[in-house]
Simulated assay, not measured.
Amino acid sequence: MIDYDVVRVFCGPDGKFGNELGVVRDGAAVADDAERLHLARTLGFAETVFVDDETSGVIDIWTPSMRLPFAGHPCVGAAWLLDTAELTTRAGRVRARRDGEFTWIAAQSGWAPPRTLKKFGSAGEVDALEVPPPGEWVYAWAWQNEVAGEVRARAFPGRGDGIDEDEATGAAAILLTAALDRALVIRQGRGSQIATSPRPGGWIEIGGRVRPA
């Protein structure tokens, strides 16, 4: 069996919840794309990271159904686990830093895969949503406190690969931050927390707490 670590990314203030991430630190042990897809599907996490060069932070990100050039929660989790200041994804180089209990990454908003950002009138409406049928990647959100930049969100990947709802979604949070052009604190899923901040030149910082699973 291939060795892998599991961390929870974007945990809440109490350290609970967060989105589980599998990290295979010895990427060479699963070098073939078909094998990586099979392992990602077998593990069943929203994403699994394969570390191809730990020294330089080269990573490869897979869902149970496809490879992703970039994704937020895998980058935050890998940056924390590898304790690195930079990651190299297929989309580009991702800067990373730690600030207290938060691990932050900076990425271009254009690297995030397309998502449908669907605004609702209240946090209660978001809470009441049923999982939609597969076919569209939907990030449902509403203001919890617009003045304070607090958002309630839920994420529905719609890929039909067993991940009906994503507990905490970095790429979608990046897209929402870019669309609103302001810093946000997002409460997603059952109790995960994502912090974001726009930066000059199309960069978005996204951060959160990471804990071993």
Rank of each mutant, 00 (worst) to 15 (best):
A183F: 01
P157M: 13
F156R: 02
E167T: 15
I163R: 05
D161C: 09
T169Y: 04
R159M: 15
A153R: 13
A168D: 00
G158D: 14
L176F: 08
R154M: 05
R159S: 10
A183H: 01
P157C: 13
A153K: 13
R159Y: 15
D181C: 00
R159T: 13
A155S: 15
A179G: 03
A173F: 00
A171K: 04
R182P: 06
A171S: 15
D166A: 10
G160Y: 12
A173M: 00
L176T: 06
R154A: 06
A171V: 07
L175A: 11
R154K: 14
A168M: 10
R152W: 09
E167W: 13
G160S: 10
A178H: 14
A153L: 09
G158R: 14
L176N: 05
R154L: 03
V185H: 00
T177P: 06
I174A: 04
G160F: 11
G170P: 10
L180D: 05
G162E: 12
G158Q: 13
G162D: 11
A168W: 12
I174Q: 02
G158L: 14
D161V: 12
R182I: 06
A172E: 02
L180P: 00
D164S: 14
G158A: 13
V185A: 11
R154F: 07
R182L: 04
I174H: 01
L184D: 02
F156W: 08
G158F: 15
R154E: 00
T169M: 06
D164K: 08
A155G: 08
A155H: 14
A155W: 01
L175W: 07
V185W: 04
R159H: 15
A178E: 14
R182S: 01
A179I: 08
T177S: 08
I174S: 02
F156V: 09
L175F: 05
T177Q: 03
T169L: 00
T177K: 04
L180R: 01
V185F: 02
F156S: 01
D164I: 07
R152D: 05
A155E: 01
D161M: 12
A178I: 04
R159P: 00
V185Y: 00
D161A: 13
D181K: 06
V185N: 01
I174F: 05
A168L: 14
A155V: 11
A178S: 09
A171C: 15
A171T: 13
A172R: 07
D181L: 03
G170A: 10
F156P: 04
L176K: 07
G158M: 15
A172I: 08
A179F: 07
R159D: 05
A178D: 12
R152H: 12
L184G: 07
L180H: 02
A153H: 11
G160A: 11
D166C: 06
R154G: 05
L184R: 04
L175S: 10
D166V: 10
L176M: 08
A179C: 07
L184V: 09
F156T: 03
E167L: 15
R152C: 09
T169Q: 04
G162L: 12
F156C: 03
D164P: 07
E167R: 14
R159F: 15
A172V: 08
R152G: 09
A172G: 12
E165K: 06
F156N: 04
A172Y: 06
G158Y: 14
D166Q: 09
A178F: 04
R159I: 08
L184E: 02
E165S: 10
R152M: 11
